[in-house]
Amino acid sequence: MKRVIIIGGGVAGMQTALRLAEEGVEPLIVEKEAELGGKLRGWHRLFPSFTPASEVLGELRSRVARRGIEVMTSTEVKAVEAGAVTLVDGRRIEGDAVTICSGFDLFDARIKEEYGYGIYDNVFTSVDIERMLNEGRVARADGSRPRRIAFLHCVGSRDEKVCQRHCSRVCCVTGVKQAMEMKELFPEADVFNFYMDIRMFGPGYEEMYREAQQRYNIHFVRGRISEAAPTIDGRVQIKAEDTLTGRPLRMSVDMLVLLVGMRAGETNPAYEAAGLGRLESGFMAPRDSFLGNVRSRTEGIFYAGTVTAPKNIGETINEGCAAADAVLEYLKKS
């Protein structure tokens, strides 16, 4: 039986493994964290349907368990080559092919110093909001209910200053989703989304955006917040340009939420040693963008999910299947 090593046990890794197992190949998932699930573990509900993330995650995990797929958790990969990986502890694992599903890293909002994340208590990231939603308690630092909330799009995306030129794609719709969730939790609160462009690329996204505007009364201001500062009562003052009126705009808010982007995984440079190329954004470069988008430049090494570019959950699941199919085709030939 042929064996395929899958680096990363998030959505992409699990789906790739499932598909391979269905086709009679033996997958091995190598996951650096203590459990499967990747970034999805920290998410509450998924756009645009508000499906609980735990539903998707739970289903994937139980399928993996039912199939009896071999999983090595708390195991980190140091180097990759066609047909083998070397672990941080020096062990070498051999297989017939490798699929890299190591995903992305979250942009560290502290790098954008002007927004005061980690300095001012009422500045949060989109990840903090998901965590608070999961904990069942969204509140300001002092535990009170917010009366005005601002979301800032594109934090760590489309920003030359932090070497992240690419668009992370999913933050726009996440911002709309979280704005709606805030409005449901705090109907009396005013919610403002500050955006550069609203990029509603997926099915149902634009409809959701429109609903956020018309039914949820969420205010969308086209302009990037330039800086945040504390006010005397522990709130946050923000400044932006309301570009559609051509006037500077300022206000104080109870919560400022930074929609952090996806940046290339920190392990990506290590893959270059295997002759794998990276894009300017730092994400791994597939062989081409059309017929070879789950294949690397090296025979026998494949990609699935956000290791090559920011993607949503649905796209990632599809890519897991596509990568598995490409692996199967390769194994038949080899």
């Binding site: 400044k239 309301d242 009126t245 006037r247 500077p248 705009l249 300022r250 206000m251 104080s252």
Partner: peptide
């Protein structure tokens, strides 16, 4: 010989 310019910002507060 001059006056203090008024802010142009839209002040939502």
């Amino acid at each position: 010989g001059y006056t203090i310019s008024k802010p142009r910002a839209i002040d939502i507060d």
